[in-house]
């Protein structure tokens, strides 16, 4: 099973859409690996640069409401995956993006706004990191010598998909 966690990329805005995550012009790539250089290319956000080390080293994305809205393109989770980001934590997700994450065996985790506010308050710390325990349904934020653990909800189906490594293997066994 995949491990979830590591340095955090803070994207402090709601409604980050799939065109911002991976512009449509790159949907002509045939392999997931080819998407790699184009991660979040069209996202305009103060302090964010898709080409800098913060993006390159990130393993977890933290964002706000309605993350992944727009297109059905699974290229959005894929461009994260090939860049080593296998979990997104947000206040809420667009349905298709959320399902695509679980279908790929990755984690789309919803946290209440108050918890997110607290984690966002660490966004200035260079060692900000999050580790995620899927079985226990907890995530631990660390940074600046502090550490705090938050519980999260995960539907049994979504959890099963993560543990199975995605929907194709799961469905092939069951249907």
């Amino acid at each position: 099973m995949k491990t979830f966690g590591g340095p955090v990329l803070f994207l402090d805005r709601s409604d980050i859409n799939t065109d911002e995550i991976i512009p449509a012009k790159y949907l002509t790539e045939i392999t997931k690996e080819d998407l790699k250089p184009y991660i979040l290319e069209d996202l305009k956000l103060s302090g964010f640069d898709p080409k800098d080390d913060k993006t390159k080293n990130a393993r977890v994305i933290l964002s706000r409401a309605n993350f992944g809205c727009g297109s059905s393109r699974e290229h959005a989770p894929w461009v994260f995956e090939v860049n080593g980001i296998t979990a997104v934590i947000a206040e809420s997700f667009a349905r298709i993006f959320r399902q695509n994450m679980f279908n790929c065996g990755m984690a789309a985790i919803e946290l209440p706004k108050a918890d997110l506010d607290l984690i966002f308050s660490h966004s200035g710390q260079s060692d900000a990191a999050i580790s995620i325990n899927i079985e226990a349904q907890t995530l631990t934020m660390s940074g600046g010598g502090n550490q705090k653990t938050f519980p999260f909800e995960l539907s049994p189906f979504d959890k099963a998909l993560i543990l199975a490594g995605g929907w194709v293997d799961y469905a092939d066994q069951k249907y």
Partner: peptide
Amino acid sequence: AGIGTTDLEVGILKGVCAFR
């Protein structure tokens, strides 16, 4: 409903899709 490539793949192979 719009779905991603993995749901599509399972739909093509098995003729099913999971929804809440």
